[in-house]
Design a protein around this nucleic acid. Structure first.
Length: 937
RNA sequence: GCUGAAGUGGUGGAAUUGGUAGACACGUUGGACUUAAAAUCCAAUGAACAGUAAUGUUCGUGCGGGUUCAAGUCCCGCCUUCAGUACCA
C-alpha cells in the first residue's frame, strides 16, 4: 500500500489555513519576490487539469524562493466580470453576482486541494465594488489626460487647456488625429462649455467617438478586434458585422511607439514579443498627395515605397473612402454605387475566403502625378482598406503584387522602373539589391537613397512628407452588457462628465432584465435608478431626470480587459481603502518578478496592461513602467477526446477497428468512460446518457475500442479531466509532480494519465525509504560518501533546474536520487533533512509530514534551502575524447585531480593509447580548453 | 503568403549548448515473492546482422548537402506539423 496521502494532505491543508501560514509580511527587510499567475475567470465548469499547470509551476517557484530567504508575494484572485455569468442570468434570471460567487467557491475548493501557497488575504475580484472603484478611478484619470508627443508622455488635461488658452491648437498637430478641428486662442475663448468639451474629446486618452465597430447581433454587443476570430465571435461563434456607433475608446495608439520599443528590453518570450510587434504593425514610409484633375481636392495616400513614385500608373481608393461619391463622374455613378453596395454586403468572412478574387471599378476621375503631371486613373477596389493608412494607395504594379494583379485584371498600364528586372510575369517586390531606373532624378539610386531623396523633394513641394502608420487601432472600451464595470460618466446635453472621484465606486444598479432594452439601449437601460444627481452627488431614480441638476448616466459598461489591466498592483495592498495601492507597498513590491500565463493573451490582456502601466507611470503613480520583469507562457494542456462511430441513420456503433472504408459519424463520449487501453465501458455509457440504452455495439475481440483525437479541453467535447479525481486517486503531491513531469512547461501537450503511476511510485518509494512498516525510521549515523554524493548532486541539479524553469527534469532528478538511496539502503537523517526541503516546493504535503516526523515545526517558515557542497560534486574521473595528430580516436577517462604532467602519464599508461602510439614517444600532449587531449606523435 | 516555434525509440520526453544519443518515466517481456491476484522487488528493452555465450559489427535524432578529428546541436537548400496574422499599401 502507498503512503497515506489523504490523511496527510488534509492535515496540512487544515494546518496551513488555520495558522495563516502563507500570509505575507510587508514591509520586510528580506528581499522581495513577486510571482504571479494570470488570474482565472471563474467559469461554471470548474477547474480542469489544464488550469493548474501554470499555478503549480509558479507555486514551486514561490515555495523555493521562500526557502531561499525571499519575502514572496504569491497571490490569487478572480477576473470575475464576464459573459458566461451574464448569459446564465439572461437564461435563468439569476443575478450574475450569485453565479459568480458560487463558481468562485468551487474554484477555491479545487485550488485548496492542490496545496497552493497563495496568500488569500490579498484575494481580488474584479467584480467587487471595492476593487472596480479603482478601475473606474483609472478610467477617470485617462479621461482627464492627453498625450503630449513633444514630451512623449501623458499629461493632465489642464496642461492642454492652458495651451489652448494661450495658442489655440497651434503646435498640437502631431498630437491629434487628422480630423481634429483647429482653433485659435481667441476662438477657444469664445467657445461655450459644451463646445470646449467636444474639442477636448479629440485629445483625451479615453474618449467618445463615432467608430466603426464589430457588432455582434446575437450577443447584442460590440466586440474588440481580438474578440473576433475569423469573422465570428470568439465566444459562441456568432456572426459579426461592421457598424458605426458612438463608443468609448482608449487612445492606445498614442503609446504605439513606446509599446513597440519597450519590448526590446523585456525578458518576455521572443515569440510573444514578436506577436505584439506584428500587432502594433509599424510601417515607415511617407504620405503623398495627388491633385485631382479639375478639382481643388487632393488625395493623400500612404506608401512604404516612396522610391517607386515614378512607377505609379493609377490610384486605388477603399470603397468606404469619403470622397468616392464626390469624385465619381456621372457616367460611372451607377457602376460605382453598385460596387460599393456589393462590397458593403460582403461579410468579413467572405472577404477572407475570397482573397484571390480581384474586384474594382473605375471612378471616371483622374489624378495628376505630383512630379510628372501624368494623368492617373482613380479606381475603387476592396483590396484597399478604409481603416489602414489613408484608405487610398498609389498603385505601383511593377513593385507590388496586388497592384500588379489588379492592373493585369483590368488591363491597366504597368511601368517598369527597376534596372535589369523582368516584370512581365510578376511584380518585383524586393527592396535590396534593386536599382531604380526610368525615374528621372532617382535613376541609379538604391531603395534607401531614393526614398530619402523623394521625401525631401515632396516636402519641398508641399506634396507629401515622411510618415509612419500603425496597424494598432484605438481600443473600443464600451460594451452593451450588464456584468461589467459601470463607466463613471453622466451626460449634460450629450456631453460626457465624470462622476467625481470621491463618489466612486459607481455601483452596478439592479435591473429587471439582463437583455438590451426594447429600444436597443444596453441592459443598464432597464435600471430604475440610473441617473446622477449633481446636487446630492448620488445615483437617483431615472424618473427624476430634469437635465438641470439630474442627468442620465452612461449605460455602457467596461470591457473584460479593464479590470485585468492593473490587478497586479491591487495584490500589493489589497485592503487599502484610500488608494489603488499605497505608495509604501508600491515602492516595496515594485513589479511582478515572474508572471505566468498563456500566450493567448499576447495581443489582449498583455498589451492593454502594458498600455495602462505606461500611462500610470507617466503620472508617477507606479515606480516602474514595465509591470512584469519576466514572463513565461505555459503551454495549454489539451484533452484527448474519445469517439464512438455511428452508422448514419441507425443506433449502431462500430468499434474503431471496424470502421475502415465505412461511412460513420464520430460521436464524442465522456473520457471518464474509457480505459487507458481505449476500451469503452458500455454499461457506464448507458447510465451516462439514457438514450444510448437501446444502441447496438459491434465489438472487436469482445471490446468496444474508441478513437482518440487531441482537442482543446472543453465541457462540450466531454474530454475534461477534473483534478479532484486525480487528487482522490493519487493525491495532490502526485498530481503536482506529474503535471511538471509531463514535459517542458512552455509546451502544449495532451493530458494523458498513462505515466502517472511512475510519479506515484516515486513518492511511495521516497516515503518507504524512511519508514519501517508504518513506523518512521531514520538513522542518526553518518551517511556514506555515496549517499552524500547523491544528495549534493541532486541539490545542485534541482536548484539549477528551478532557476532555469526546467521543472520536468528536476522531477527526474528526484527519481534518480531515490533509486540510488534505495539501493544504498540510506535512511539517514542527514540526507533526509535537506532532501525534504529540496522536494517541498514540488510535493509540499508529504514533505511537511516528514519534516514534522523529524521533529520540526512547519517547514514553510523555519527551513532554509540546502546548498550543495562542492566536495561531493566532483567526479573522480572525467571523460575526454583523445585525438592523435588531430584525429579523434577514442574517449579516455582521466582523473580530474591529475596535473598536466600526470595527464601525459595517464595517456601513456593506457593500453589502447599504447597500441596507437606503437612504441613511439609522443612529442607533446596538449590539453585544449574544449577538453580534447591532443597527442602529436 | 508572412512571422514564430518544433520534428529524437512503441509512448511522454533527456542530452552539461559541438564531445559515449535515447537520462528519467510509461509500456512491453522475463524472473522473484504469493494457493492466486494486487502491490512490491530484480533484470532486459533503438534497429539490423554475426555468435551457444560474454561480446562484436553496421545503421540510426524529418529529407538532401556542407563545415569539423567529432554534428540531434553549426551553415545552405527542402519537407512536415503546430501557433499567430493576413488583400496592411
Amino acid at each position: 500500500m502507498g503512503y497515506p496521502f489523504q490523511d496527510i494532505e488534509h492535515k496540512w491543508q487544515t494546518y496551513w489555513a488555520e495558522n495563516k501560514t502563507y500570509r505575507v509580511a510587508q514591509p520586510s527587510n528580506k528581499p522581495k519576490f513577486y510571482v504571479l499567475d494570470m488570474f482565472p475567470y471563474p467559469s461554471g465548469a470548474g477547474l480542469h487539469v489544464g488550469h493548474p499547470l501554470g499555478y503549480i509551476a509558479s507555486d514551486i517557484v514561490a515555495r523555493y524562493k521562500r526557502h531561499k530567504g525571499f519575502n514572496v508575494l504569491h497571490p490569487q484572485g478572480y477576473d470575475s466580470f464576464g459573459l458566461p455569468a451574464e448569459q446564465y442570468a439572461i437564461q435563468t434570471g439569476q443575478h450574475p453576482a450569485i453565479t459568480t460567487e458560487t463558481n468562485i467557491k468551487r474554484y477555491r475548493e479545487q485550488l485548496d486541494r492542490m496545496g497552493f501557497s497563495f496568500d488569500w488575504s490579498r484575494e481580488v475580484r474584479t467584480s467587487d465594488p471595492s476593487y472596480y472603484r479603482w478601475t473606474q478611478w483609472i478610467f477617470s484619470l485617462l479621461f482627464d489626460a492627453w498625450y503630449d508627443k513633444k514630451q512623449n508622455k501623458a499629461r493632465h488635461i489642464e496642461a492642454l487647456i492652458a495651451h489652448l488658452e494661450q495658442y489655440g491648437t497651434k503646435d498640437l498637430e502631431a498630437v491629434c488625429d487628422a480630423d481634429t478641428p483647429t482653433c485659435t486662442a481667441q476662438e477657444w475663448e469664445n467657445m461655450d462649455k459644451g463646445q470646449k468639451q467636444m474639442l477636448l474629446l479629440y485629445f483625451r486618452l479615453t474618449f467618445l467617438a463615432e467608430t466603426e465597430v464589430n457588432w455582434c447581433p446575437a450577443l447584442g454587443t460590440v466586440l474588440a478586434n481580438d474578440e473576433v476570430v475569423q469573422g465570428v465571435s470568439e465566444r459562441g461563434g456568432h456572426p459579426v458585422e461592421r457598424k458605426k456607433m458612438k463608443q468609448w475608446s482608449m487612445r492606445i495608439s498614442a503609446y504605439a511607439d513606446r509599446l513597440l520599443e519597450g519590448l526590446d528590453a523585456m525578458d518576455w518570450p521572443e515569440p510573444l514579443k514578436e506577436m505584439q510587434r506584428n500587432w502594433i504593425g509599424k510601417s515607415v514610409g511617407s504620405n503623398v498627395r495627388f491633385t485631382i484633375e479639375n478639382s481643388e481636392r487632393q488625395i493623400e495616400v500612404f506608401t512604404t515605397r516612396p522610391d517607386t513614385l515614378y512607377g505609379v500608373t493609377f490610384l486605388t481608393l477603399a470603397p468606404e473612402h469619403e470622397w468616392v461619391h464626390e469624385l465619381t463622374t456621372i457616367e460611372q455613378k451607377l457602376e460605382v454605387d453598385a460596387y460599393i453596395a456589393q462590397s458593403a454586403q460582403r461579410s468579413e468572412r467572405e472577404r477572407m475566403s475570397e482573397v484571390d478574387r480581384i474586384s474594382g471599378v473605375f471612378t471616371g476621375a483622374y489624378a495628376l502625378h505630383p512630379l510628372t503631371k501624368e494623368k492617373l486613373p482613380i479606381w475603387i477596389g476592396d483590396y484597399v482598406l478604409a481603416g489602414y493608412g489613408t484608405g487610398a494607395v498609389m498603385a505601383v504594379p511593377c513593385g507590388d503584387q496586388r497592384d500588379f494583379d489588379f492592373a493585369t485584371h483590368f488591363n491597366l498600364p504597368i511601368k517598369n522602373i527597376f534596372k535589369g528586372v523582368d516584370v512581365n510575369e510578376a511584380a518585383h517586390t524586393a527592396k535590396e539589391n534593386t536599382i531604380i531606373d526610368n525615374s528621372d532624378f532617382l535613376n541609379g539610386l538604391s531603395f534607401t537613397e531614393a526614398t530619402q531623396k523623394v521625401i525631401k523633394v515632396l516636402e519641398e513641394m508641399g506634396m507629401g512628407k515622411g510618415a509612419t502608420t500603425y496597424r494598432l487601432r484605438d481600443a473600443v472600451f464600451s460594451r452593451q452588457r450588464y456584468w461589467g464595470e459601470p463607466i463613471p460618466v453622466y451626460y449634460i446635453d450629450g456631453k460626457p462628465q465624470l462622476v467625481p472621484d470621491e463618489c466612486l465606486p459607481l455601483e452596478l444598479p439592479e435591473v429587471s432584465k439582463y437583455l438590451p432594452t426594447a429600444d436597443g439601449a444596453p441592459p443598464l437601460g432597464n435600471a430604475a435608478e440610473w441617473a446622477w444627481d449633481t446636487k446630492q452627488n448620488k445615483v437617483v431614480s431615472n424618473l427624476k431626470i430634469d437635465h438641470k441638476t439630474i442627468f442620465p448616466l452612461e449605460k455602457n459598461t467596461m470591457p473584460g480587459w479593464a479590470g485585468s489591466s492593473w490587478y497586479f498592483y491591487r495584490y500589493m495592498d489589497a485592503q487599502n481603502p484610500n488608494a489603488f495601492a499605497g505608495e509604501e507597498a508600491l515602492n516595496y513590491w515594485r513589479e511582478v518578478d515572474l508572471y505566468l500565463g498563456g500566450s493567448e493573451h499576447a495581443t489582449g490582456h498583455l498589451l492593454y496592461s502594458r498600455f495602462w502601466q505606461y500611462f500610470l507611470f507617466d503620472f508617477d503613480l507606479v515606480p516602474v513602467a514595465n509591470f512584469a520583469k519576466k514572463l513565461i507562457n505555459q503551454g495549454m494542456i489539451l484533452g484527448e477526446s474519445a469517439f464512438m462511430y455511428r452508422i448514419p441513420e441507425t443506433q449502431t456503433y462500430l468499434s474503431k477497428g471496424l470502421c475502415k472504408g465505412k461511412n460513420v459519424i464520430p460521436v464524442h463520449v465522456d473520457v471518464s468512460l474509457v480505459s487507458a487501453q481505449n476500451e469503452l465501458n458500455i454499461d457506464g455509457l448507458k447510465k451516462w446518457q439514457p438514450h444510448f440504452s437501446d444502441a447496438n455495439f459491434e465489438l472487436e475481440n469482445r471490446k468496444y475500442i474508441v478513437g482518440r483525437e487531441v482537442e482543446k479541453m472543453s465541457k462540450s467535447k466531454y474530454n475534461v479531466v477534473n483534478p479532484d479525481a486525480i487528487c482522490d486517486q493519487y493525491g495532490a503531491d502526485t498530481l503536482r509532480m506529474y503535471e511538471m513531469f509531463l514535459g517542458p512547461i512552455e509546451q502544449a501537450k495532451p493530458w494523458n494519465t498513462a505515466g502517472i503511476s511512475g510519479v506515484s511510485n516515486f513518492l511511495n518509494k521516497f516515503w518507504r525509504l524512511f519508514h519501517d512498516g508504518d513506523a518512521f525510521n531514520v538513522s542518526d549515523e553518518h551517511p556514506s560518501k555515496d549517499s552524500l554524493k547523491t544528495l549534493h548532486k541532486t541539490i545542485e541539479k534541482v536548484t539549477q533546474d528551478i532557476e532555469q524553469f526546467s521543472l520536468n527534469t528536476s522531477v527526474s532528478a528526484f527519481m534518480i536520487a531515490t533509486n540510488e538511496l534505495t539501493s544504498q539502503k540510506c535512511n539517514h537523517r542527514k540526507i533526509l533533512e535537506p532532501l525534504t526541503i529540496l522536494l517541498a516546493p514540488f510535493a509540499p504535503h508529504i514533505c511537511e509530514e516528514l519534516w514534522s516526523l523529524l521533529g520540526y515545526k512547519s517547514s514553510i517558515t523555519t527551513a532554509t534551502y540546502p546548498i550543495p557542497n562542492p566536495d561531493y560534486l566532483q567526479d573522480d574521473t572525467k571523460k575526454y575524447p583523445v585525438s592523435f595528430n588531430g584525429k579523434m580516436r577514442f574517449t579516455l577517462a582521466l582523473s580530474t585531480s591529475l596535473s598536466k604532467d600526470e595527464i601525459e602519464v595517464a595517456v601513456m599508461g593506457d593500453d589502447r593509447t599504447q597500441s596507437y602510439l606503437d612504441g613511439k614517444t609522443p612529442k607533446k600532449v596538449i590539453v585544449v580548453p574544449n577538453k580534447i587531449v591532443n597527442i602529436v606523435v
